[in-house]
Amino acid sequence: MSETTNGKSDIIALNKVGKTFWRGKERLDVLQELDLTMKEGSFEALMGPSGSGKSTLLNLIAGLDVPSSGSLRVAGVELSQMSEGDRAGFRAANIGFVFQTYNLLPVLTALENVELPLLLAKLPAAERRKRAQTALKVVGLEDRMSHYPRQLSGGQEQRVTIARAIVSDPKIIVADEPTGDLDRHAANEILNLLGKLNTEFNKTIVMVTHDPAAAERASICHRLDKGALAL
């Protein structure tokens, strides 16, 4: 990892990253020659109008997609040439996901939803359970463990999603509009929680948001416009 002046290393480093989509014969350059670094333990927001490429950027950082050009290192791993199978392993180990629409499995209880990512790790059942319980305690839902998603409020569902994101102890949490579906009060709770993960647990948080109030919680706010960083 490249050392920087303030002693903290870059956990995310994009070098001349481009991403092109084809819609039929029409070429869409969603990201162009993008250089961006994020420090370990930072809380950074990505803002920008629709179509600015912020979600594509988030997908690249999370290892969901690969760039068309340039290099991309996340958590010490070069992702740009990695196969989908290897990236799945990378995601399981390094990335926690928080989505706007929560995306919990409706047929599983809160505890089981949180336990889900651990099924990929070869852990004994009791150990998985213990870790999932711990994660739910962190988000303050220890009394809702056996509830199904439909029995929870939106804010509670999003907290379960956060518990799911941290249960395998990833270094990075990516959040795509985590407060987009919530009222102000619930949104504040979620943002407080993300802040706590950042400060107390030293998680690097990358958050895409439209909400200026949410962006204020981040230490750095990147603005994207037409596939490039706007300053």
Binding site: R91, N103, L120
Partner: peptide, 12 residues
């Protein structure tokens, strides 16, 4: 969408 989430969190 659910399968997308599962894949995102590392399922193959």
């Amino acid at each position: 969408n659910e399968y997308g989430v599962l894949r995102a969190i590392g399922f193959l």
